[in-house]
Write a protein that binds this DNA or RNA. Sequence first.
DNA 1: ACGCTTTTTGTGAGCGTTCACATTTATTGT
DNA 2: ACAATAAATGTGAACGCTCACAAAAAGCGT
Lengths: 336, 336
Amino acid sequence: MNKQRYTLNDVAQRAGVSYQTVSRVVNNHPSVAAATRARVQNIIQELGYHPNKVAQSLVANQSNTLAILTFAMSYYGPTQMVVNIERAAKELGYDLIFSNLQEPSYEELRKTLGSLSGRRVDGIISISPVVGVSYEEMVSLCGNTPLVQIDPQMGLEVPSVIVDQHYGSQLATEHLIQLGHERFAEISGPLNWFGAIARHQQWLATLQHAGLTPMMSVEGDWSAKSGYDAARRLLQADPGFTALAVGNDQMALGAIYALHEANLRVPDDISVVGFDDIPETAFFQPPLTTIRQDFSRLGAMGVKYLQELIENPDTPIQQHIIVPRLIVRQSATAAR
Amino acid sequence: MNKQRYTLNDVAQRAGVSYQTVSRVVNNHPSVAAATRARVQNIIQELGYHPNKVAQSLVANQSNTLAILTFAMSYYGPTQMVVNIERAAKELGYDLIFSNLQEPSYEELRKTLGSLSGRRVDGIISISPVVGVSYEEMVSLCGNTPLVQIDPQMGLEVPSVIVDQHYGSQLATEHLIQLGHERFAEISGPLNWFGAIARHQQWLATLQHAGLTPMMSVEGDWSAKSGYDAARRLLQADPGFTALAVGNDQMALGAIYALHEANLRVPDDISVVGFDDIPETAFFQPPLTTIRQDFSRLGAMGVKYLQELIENPDTPIQQHIIVPRLIVRQSATAAR
DNA sequence: ACGCTTTTTGTGAGCGTTCACATTTATTGT
DNA sequence: ACAATAAATGTGAACGCTCACAAAAAGCGT
C-alpha cells in the first residue's frame, strides 16, 4: 500500500540520474544506455510509479480521453452502444468519460459540454437520438473538439454513424405485407426520437407504396408498460387490425401481453413485429420477429471515425450507415 | 465556432488586468471590484473561455473525477448501477470515467488501475460481483485512492454497498414454501458471481431450515437462453418439481418458455420466482413474482460513501446494506 | 593521444492554473 | 489633509511533465 505518490524526480533521485532520463525511460526513447534503463525501470517497479497523466495532458494539450454523451441510458439500444463504444475506445487507447443527460435541454448541454471542453477531451461521441438540440448548437458548444453523432436525424450533413431506421422499418412492414395482411396498426416510439420518427414515417410510406391504408398508430415511450397501454388503446379504438408494427421489443412484449389478455392470439389473430432484437426476444411467447441492429459494429465505427477526425480535422464529413436486418421468428404469420 | 482555446492570460490581456484577477473572477473570490468583475465576465462570455481543468487538477492534485469499474455491463443489474452512479456522481460534481473489464484477470486490472491512478482519479467505485480478484489485490493496486465496492463478497471488511442477496433469496424461497410447495428446483446464476453464490446458498439454507430437501439445481449464465437450456435440463432430469427459483428475471423468461414448450403451465403446474424485477417482468406470461433491488439507492449510497472516504480517509469501513423486497405477481401460486 | 562524431545525460523553459505573498489603490477617522 | 486601515490587484513560485536544446561521456580513425 504505497501511501506516497511518486514523481519523475523521486525516481530520478533514487536512480542517481536526472528526471529527464527517467522520462526517457518511461517513454521508451531510444537514447538511454541499457544499464541506466534497467536501473531506472527497477526503481519504477519498486516504487509503483505511474506517470501523472494530468501533467502529461497539460503539456501535450490533449488528454487521450473521449467523452460519451447519452440522453437515455435506460434503454437497450443506448446501453449497448455505450458498452461497445467503451470497448472500441479502450482498444484505441482512449479513456472514456461518461455523461448521461437527464433531459436534452440546451442549458444542460451547455454545462456538460463546457465541462468537457475544460477537461480537454480529445473528442466527443454523442448518442443523440432525441429531438431538441440542434446539431449547430452542439457543434458551437463543442468548439473545435471533434464530434461524432450516433443515430441523429438522418440526412444531416454531420459526422455520424446511423442505423438505417427507414430501411429497418421497411423490412418489418414489407414482411407483414408479404404475409398478406391488410389491416395495419402501429405502436411507435416517442416521436421526439429520430429513430421513432423514421420508423413511423417509413411504416406509413411502405404501406402507401403498397397501396394499403394504415389504420391507426399510437405512441409509446419505449417501455413495456407503454406498449401494453398502447395496445389496449388500439384494441379499444378498433380491434379489427391483424398486423401490428411495434417500435421496439420491450413495447412489443407489453403489447403481446395486452393482446393475450384480450383473448387474441399472436400470431394467429394478430401478427406482431418488433424492433431491436434484444436477446430476450427469442423467448417471448411467441418468439418475436424483429429487426436486428448491430450495435457492436456501430460503436466500433463511431470511435474509429472519431479518431480519424481527431488525427486529421480535414477528414471529410461522412454518414456511416449501419444496415439492420429482419430476424424472422414466430410472432408474424400469414393473414387469416 | 471558436477555433482558439483561450487561457486566463488571454482573458486578462483583453480585460487589462492580471491573470490572477481573472482567476478570482472565475472562482468567485470576493475581493474583486464589481466593475472589474463585470468587465472580465463579459470577456469570458464573449470568448467562450473555460478554465482548463487539466491545469487545475495538476495544481490541486485531484481531478474531480471518479472512476467506475465494471466487469459485465451486459446485464441489467450492472447497467442500472452504472446509470445511477453516474447520476449521483454528477450531482456531487464529479465526472465519471467508465471502464469495463472484459475479464477479471489480475493483469487487466493492474493495467486499468495503473492508468486510473496516473489519471489521479479521486476515487474508484468497483462493481465487482465476480470471483477472481481479491480485495487485497485491488486495494494494493489502487494505492491510496479510495475504493468502494459494489456487491462484492459479503462479510468482507471492506468499504462497500451490498444488496442483501441472502435475504432476497430467503424471501423468494420462503414465499414458495408458504405456498405449500415441497419439490424445489433452482436455476442459479453463474457460480463465480458472489450474488449467484449467495442466492444459491440461501435457497439451500432456507429449504433446510424448513425441513425440506432441495431436489436439484442447474447453473445458468444470466441470459434468457441459458435459463431456457437449464429448465430443459431440469425437466429432463426430473419433471416432478413444482417450485422453481431462478437467479434472475431473464433466465426466468427463458425457463418459463421451456416450461411452456413442455406443456407445463406457470403457475398452475410449476411456480416460478425470479430476481431483479426488471421492468419487463410485469408483462411476462404470466407476470413474474420476483425480488426487487433498489439500484438507484445503491448507486447514490456508493457515491456518497466514496465521497466521504475521499474527504476524510479515516471514515470507518462500513458495509451499507440494501434490503431487497418481494414483488408478488402471478408466477407463483399455491401448490397443487 | 588527438580531435572528430555519436551516444548518453542534464538544464532551462513552459503548459494553465492556484497559492502565498507583495504591492498598489481606495476608504475612512480625525 | 494625513496617516492608518481596508480593499483590490499584481508577482513569483509551484504542480509534474515534455520539449528543445546544451553539455558531458564514450567511441573511433589515424
